[in-house]
Amino acid sequence: MMQHPVPDERRPANDGPKAAARNRAALVNAAREIYAAYGLDAPLSAIARRAGVGQGVLYRHFPDRVALAGAVLEENVRQVEQAAAVDNATLADVLGVMTWHLTESAAFIGLLHAHESGGPSDIRAHALALSERVERGLRGHLPDGHRLGAANDLMLAVAMVSGAVTGPTRADRECRALAAWRLLGVEVGPVRPFDS
């Protein structure tokens, strides 16, 4: 039996492109949360549920797991670059944003090491390009003579800190990341996402 809307009832508005942009952003945020809790192999259905959309919506935006992880990584890198582009930003400020992403996103940690591991060459190349963007953002704020100024020292320190980012909660991971930076003798600003 077909039901017709009662005259006083309103159907939800179809927001068209606005809904698509909102759904995409919700999927990226949900993926970041799910990846942080369960790793990169978490079920895509869990991400769709967390975002409040169906799996069909997920697949319309991201045809596969790699595309979704790539979107999370791109957002992480973009925030580090935005923090680095702020007038008067210091290395500590940029490291604070990067450290937030390390503690929040397992995908971001994977990015920093993916180009060194096996796997498809296109994924390794993409990971390398993103990792180089992070390095440029950080290196642009290294004062002359900084202890991490030598050729590979900066990204080696980032890799060492990312290896320390473990723990069941984001607070645990942040505590360990800050301890690792402290052991390296590096000051880190407030650990938070970049707010434009």
Rank of each mutant, 00 (worst) to 15 (best):
A21M: 13
P7W: 10
K18G: 15
L102A: 04
A71R: 02
T103I: 10
A151D: 10
A159D: 06
T103K: 09
P17N: 12
R173K: 10
W181K: 05
R49A: 14
I109Q: 08
N14A: 13
V80H: 06
S121I: 03
R24I: 07
A67P: 02
E132F: 09
G16Q: 14
E9K: 12
A21C: 14
H4F: 15
E81G: 08
G39S: 10
L138A: 03
A127S: 09
L184T: 05
V6L: 13
V191G: 05
A42R: 07
I47K: 08
V86P: 01
R147A: 12
A71T: 02
P193W: 03
S196E: 08
D93C: 07
G140K: 00
F62M: 03
H4S: 10
R192T: 09
A13S: 09
D64R: 04
A51M: 01
S105N: 02
L184C: 00
G137K: 00
G140I: 02
R32C: 12
E81D: 07
L95F: 04
A129L: 05
F194A: 09
H141R: 07
M1L: 13
G56V: 03
G119A: 08
V158I: 08
R176E: 06
G137N: 00
G110Y: 12
R22M: 15
H61K: 08
T99L: 00
A125Y: 00
P5M: 10
A85E: 02
S196C: 14
D195C: 10
I123F: 12
L40I: 13
T166A: 14
R65S: 14
R192K: 13
H61S: 12
G96V: 01
R65N: 09
R147M: 06
L58P: 08
T99C: 07
Y59K: 05
P143M: 03
M98C: 10
L183T: 06
K18S: 12
A67T: 06
V94F: 10
D93M: 00
A92T: 00
E135S: 01
H113Q: 12
R32I: 12
V66F: 13
R133C: 01
L184Q: 05
P17R: 12
R11S: 13
L178K: 01
F194L: 11
G54I: 02
M160D: 04
Q55Y: 07
G145I: 03
V165T: 04
L95G: 04
Q79A: 14
R136Y: 03
P7V: 06
E104R: 14
V158F: 05
P143L: 07
E187F: 04
R65K: 15
G140R: 01
R11I: 12
Q79Y: 08
R65C: 09
H126D: 15
H141Y: 02
E74P: 04
L128C: 10
R133H: 01
R170G: 09
A150L: 12
A157K: 04
E187G: 09
A46S: 15
V97S: 00
A19D: 05
S105E: 00
G110E: 07
A46E: 06
L184G: 02
D122G: 08
M155K: 01
L91T: 01
E9R: 10
Y35I: 05
A20Y: 05
R78C: 09
E135R: 09
V72T: 06
L40G: 10
I109V: 11
